[in-house]
Amino acid sequence: MSALLFFMVLGSLALAWFGRRHWSMTLVLAAIALGVVWFGHHVTSAIHIDL
């Protein structure tokens, strides 16, 4: 999963280099969103509390 996110950034860099600004920004935002989801899963699976 984490490697996939780095490859997404690499793709985003390539898109920016070839002038695809909107696709590059979309891919970066998608990587941030996936990172947040992954982090959320990491935190919620490690904490055991009753709310």
């Binding site: 984490s2 990587a31 941030i32 990172g35 982090f39």
Partner: peptide, 18 residues
Amino acid sequence: LQRLAFVLMTMGPLLNLR
């Protein structure tokens, strides 16, 4: 994940330059 955030953080300035 922190490394990833550092990398993502540089995308703003990279897009600014490009």
